[in-house]
Design a protein around this nucleic acid. Structure first.
Length: 211
DNA sequence: AGAGAGATTTCCT
DNA sequence: GGAAATCTCTCTT
């Protein structure tokens, strides 16, 4: 109870990537792990639009062991390891053969804050909102807090321990802002495309992307 | 508040 | 060898 308005089914993911990215805002990501359940509301995302997008791992149709899942059906988890330290969690988008993805950049913790703090090796007072947000206000942080790593690579998000629930109340369009993606300066013109979306003024936005 | 460096794998040259 | 869809710590302002 209280988590959301129902599990997102397989067909939810079959929509154009921009619509899916916007729909993910306000939804709740859940991981039911052996150690316990954690959940967080999605407040910031970025879309990566496949072969035409110079910032995407699948730019030019590049396929490696890492990017393979993006070429499959939407709604699977694309997880990659970066900077020798961090995992980043993405929702695969686009139909079979269309390697697009949506990076989840920030969550608002909803359930399992103590477990998140333990995984992040932090001591957090649940009544201190800024400290709670700091558990999941970045793509590497939220993966660690949610217990997401290479083990979940490729899982189907409508049928696994990692899943998505619809928001109880839809976000009004006025609550959503968009702007350029973070840390893609190498991508030429694509670095300026407004393909990051976030909930305006939300306290849990990533450090690099405050309003 | 902001800048700089270190951590250290995956992928490309 | 070098950069990357990042984070943390330290030093400086």
């Amino acid at each position: 109870m209280g988590i959301g308005n129902g599990l997102a089914g397989e067909r939810f993911f079959r929509q154009p990537t921009e619509g899916l990215a916007l729909a993910l805002l306000g939804m709740v990501l859940v991981h039911e792990a052996d150690e316990g359940m954690t959940a967080g509301r999605i407040v910031e995302v970025e879309m990566y639009k496949g072969p035409q997008d110079a910032a995407a791992h699948s730019y030019g149709g590049k396929m490696t062991a890492r990017t393979q899942v993006m070429y499959g059906e939407p709604g699977h988890a694309y997880i990659y390891f970066i900077y020798g330290m961090h995992y980043c969690f993405n929702v695969v988008s686009g139909p079979l053969g269309s390697p697009e993805a949506i990076l989840i950049r920030a969550l608002e913790p909803v359930c399992g804050i103590a477990l998140m703090a333990e995984r992040r090796r932090r001591v957090v007072d649940s009544n201190h909102p800024k400290k709670v947000c700091a558990l999941t206000n970045g793509p590497g942080k939220l993966s660690q807090a949610m217990g997401i790593n290479a083990e979940q690579y490729g899982v189907a998000l409508w049928d696994s321990a990692v899943r998505l629930y619809h928001a109880e109340d839809p976000l009004p369009p006025s609550a959503v802002a968009r702007g350029p993606r973070i840390n893609v300066g190498y991508a030429g013109a694509a670095a300026h495309y407004p393909w990051r979306f976030w909930i305006r003024q939300h306290p849990c936005l990533s450090v690099r992307s405050r309003d």
